[in-house]
Design a protein around this nucleic acid. Structure first.
Lengths: 243, 243
DNA sequence: ACGGTAGGTATACGGCGTACACTTGTCAAG
DNA sequence: CTTGACAAGTGTACGCCGTATACCTACCGT
């Protein structure tokens, strides 16, 4: 492990090496035994050295998520929406299987980092390209929910998210510029979020009607169950039909 | 807070008071700031006193889950399966909203405690009573998955679960007795688990074919999405139609 | 009245994240 | 080649955490 010397010369640390090592360590020994001290030891370095490359443990975890999300296959452009979404979700599932700790970490994280936003944006894009209305896309994304890792739960709660919780607010023109940049980089998210913000003034106000989203997904499943029941579905027949 | 004296006499601690206080503290200050020390302080007691009533923090969390699950409404017997399941899930959701920490804790827990098993058993019972085959019930439970809190994910992995990870195994006849007792107390779980154990010898062996379960639920949702898309579903119309 | 025991206490240990002040290595400009 | 500034790495310390162990004490059945 801990390579100390490389022909007499120390290997310089950097953020990527730290994240890489953290992912590897979590893969091997489980997330609960990933500590800053243990990670430093693995890198042949004193604990505080890590803090030159990550602000704190929270940011380390965010970085690990970024790394993981980067492993998900990009959508293949040719397919119909259902095939594209299917392939994407199954690819995400494979990644989660490779990194058993990822599910737990993803669900504990509330910050949306760029890779996560990018993933969601391209995900939304698949539905829009498949002929879904913005409205339906919105609810469908919620319904996919934790099957795409749960972070969709509070997806559109706070539109101006990433690292915008600074102690003192930025000047308004800077905020506007940032929002515009966000809109440029994640056009699909922006589209859906803005539509949602306008739409449901009937309810409490801005933000999603969580109760509605929940019942939407629930009823979708229950209706599906009922259909299967009526046609006497069985897993044996399903498996025989496919494989 | 911390009531010290009750007309000159200390209020005796007990497991229920500990769990109750833990739930309240987590509700008020968040799960991340629930520590044994803080909890003890809240109860006007030295930290180690808690260990006379709870083995360790893990068991404390298990106990909190038990308490929470007990808050879910029992199924009302008259309804059709869909209404019954719907009401049950929505009741569970209300409980989770009351205790925001519960989702995270539930998903981190792998032990199945009695209340959780009881909840699942009665849940399965609703499907069986509604005319679902054991086979379909099994897969449907998986599909409901994290919408019923994720613990269905590894539901049937290890049939002989609760506290059976003692350092030295019990004598076989004791194990058999325990299994029989389990079967008596949770007949529906047992039924489904046994059917599943027999069925899928086609795959790796015992246990569930996770990939199949995942795709089953995914395709159920995707098919539902497609149906909505084709009929130009919109949330506005859906809301108008209902409310 | 008393002795056993369940409930509560005191102390201590090793691990954690990280603040703060420091030394060391590296590399560009003089 | 020297130098000096800035980035990278170090050492020490603090206040948390969970909990092992040994002890004390109030209560209850006898």
């Amino acid at each position: 492990m801990a390579q100390q010397i490389d022909s007499g010369r120390r290997v310089r640390l950097n953020r990527d090496r730290v994240l890489q090592a953290a992912v590897a360590l979590a893969d091997e020994t489980g997330i609960e035994s990933l500590s800053m001290r243990r990670l430093a030891q693995e890198l042949g370095v004193v604990p505080m050295a890590l803090y030159k490359h990550v602000a704190n443990k929270e940011e380390l975890l965010d970085g690990m998520v970024e790394a993981i999300v980067g492993e998900i296959d990009p959508p293949l452009p040719g397919a119909d929406w259902q095939g594209a979404v299917r392939q994407r979700v199954l690819s995400a599932r494979l990644v989660l299987l490779r990194h058993p700790w990822a599910r737990q970490v993803l669900e504990s994280r509330t910050n949306k980092t760029p890779a996560v936003l990018g993933y969601m944006d391209s995900f939304i894009g698949m539905f829009l390209a498949g002929g879904f209305s913005i409205d339906l896309t919105h609810h469908v994304m919620h319904a996919l929910g934790s099957r795409m890792w749960g972070f969709t739960q509070e997806l559109f709660q706070d539109p101006a998210v990433p690292a915008a919780d600074a102690p003192e607010a930025l000047p308004p023109e800077a905020q506007a510029a940032m929002l515009q940049q966000l809109a440029q980089r994640y056009p699909n998210i922006t589209q859906v979020a803005m539509a949602a913000a306008h739409e449901d003034s009937s309810v409490v106000g801005p933000g999603c009607d969580d109760q509605f989203e929940f019942e939407f997904a629930l009823d979708l499943l229950l209706d599906g169950f009922e259909r299967l029941r009526r046609r006497n579905w069985s897993s044996a027949r399903a498996k025989a039909g496919r494989g």
